[in-house]
Design a protein around this nucleic acid. Structure first.
Lengths: 242, 242
DNA sequence: CGATTTTTTGACAGTATTCAACGGGGGTGG
DNA sequence: CCACCCCCGTTGAATACTGTCAAAAAATCG
């Protein structure tokens, strides 16, 4: 069996037993490759499955009637993607590959057995879904109540810390494979203004950029201008039990 | 046993058996009263429980370091409140009573038994949590990518339709017990601008107002200016099984 | 290496915020 | 029961931030 990315991530929150690990590994029934820019699943397309990112980045977005797009979240390795659509037969959001990527495919009906046989994992999934709601709420607060500069900083800070939580080395910079237009769609700004704000962050010595990578020069400063709270660092799943 | 508000709401999505109903009823161990404006639970306060709104409205909000506030969602009768905090020992958000209200209290540890004994309900809760994520994503798109007028319209439209889904008569208007400042904090606008936008919606004949109530004169128009999609109307939980 | 996409820059426009002041309604205390 | 006060809603004027439009430079892709 392929090493389960999902089990690794859940293992960060709970000490998993062998049966649990196996059950999680068995969830992903197949694998799919998508290349940068490709749509993995379009809004409104029939959707019976959810995905686990194995390699690369995806993002989910929705299109407004006036042609505007909102990027709702970026999905990094070992995270779910498309799991929000479980309550519908058709996908609420579009899933796009931000880089070349590989995803594991889970039929949502397979979750029935997981919840029945491993209630503790079910509860963990539920708890993490709630944590994702909190993360989305943080983004809402960022977009609704902070300046353009803060929003851009928040995006970078959030991604950097999630990469680090995933075990990636971030000291010599992180990849940022999003165009400024995509960053704008994520933060509720125009591409032009994203450019100005990133440039400003560079001038202030908070970050540095070179060919698609961002290096954080002053994390404290970045987090401060972003109003960023590292919520995932304080997650407590002790009450989930044995 | 008191009629369980929670069981009623879950019953909208799944035909519940008697044992299931009983199990849901047993979750809420006590009841608490809060009066308009009162804080049910403050951000960062220790939090072992979640709530079910029995009567009245609540909202959850977070405070930014600069003093700004973002209202994250409004909780109507029979909905959860504070369930997002499950992954932490301390509450991520503040819960405030928007009107005098009554809530049922659920210790989060009680969910362990529910998930173990009624996996189908666990899966339903998980699915509905995902649906809430989608609702929040819709709000993010509204705040990030639409005009002030559209955001105000979206808030009204959303609440109206959720009240209707809850079985309330909305034809002769709905209550809107939020100050314009609160509406601003929910939509990412200033109170002053909320005032102008509501006034504009009135002038255009989309809504009418009288002492704390709003009557929707042209729902199609309202939904159109709001870019509103009634996602909860199309929820499909058939795959959850027997 | 040519074509296309992305980034960068400047000038200008527009939407929403800020600041300030006034009116109304409801609740509280005398 | 009335007066007072505070909060909320309303309005106007000036400001500021972000968006729009346009064009050129730079980078990426095939």
């Amino acid at each position: 069996m392929v090493q389960s990315c999902l089990a690794d991530r859940l293992g960060r929150y709970l000490r998993l037993g062998d049966t649990e690990r196996r059950a999680l590994g068995a969830l992903e029934e197949s694998e799919r490759l998508v290349s940068r820019g490709q749509v993995l699943r379009a809004e409104q397309a029939p959707a019976r499955e959810l995905f686990v990112v194995r390699r690369g980045w995806l993002y989910s977005s929705m299109l407004l009637p006036d042609g505007n797009r909102q990027i709702l979240s970026v999905h990094l390795p070992c995270e779910f993607a498309g799991d929000t659509g479980m309550a519908w037969g058709n996908a609420p959001f579009t899933l796009v590959a931000a880089t070349d990527a590989v995803v594991g495919v889970i039929d949502k009906a397979a979750l029935r057995r997981l919840f029945a046989e491993h209630p503790r994992l079910g509860l963990l999934l539920y708890t993490l879904a709630q944590a994702e709601r909190v993360a989305l709420a943080d983004r809402l607060a960022s977009v609704g109540r902070t300046s353009a500069r803060a929003r851009v900083a928040a995006l970078i800070c959030d991604i950097m810390r999630r990469l680090r939580a995933g075990g990636e080395a971030v000291e010599d910079g992180i990849p940022l494979p999003l165009t400024q237009e995509e960053i704008g769609d994520a933060t509720g700004l125009t591409a032009v203004h994203v450019n100005r704000m990133m440039r400003q962050l560079v001038e202030e010595g908070v970050i540095a950029r070179s060919n698609g990578r961002v290096r954080i020069l002053d994390e404290a400063q970045l987090a401060a201008t972003a109003n960023h709270i590292d919520r995932f660092a304080t997650i407590d799943t002790g009450w989930l039990g044995s």
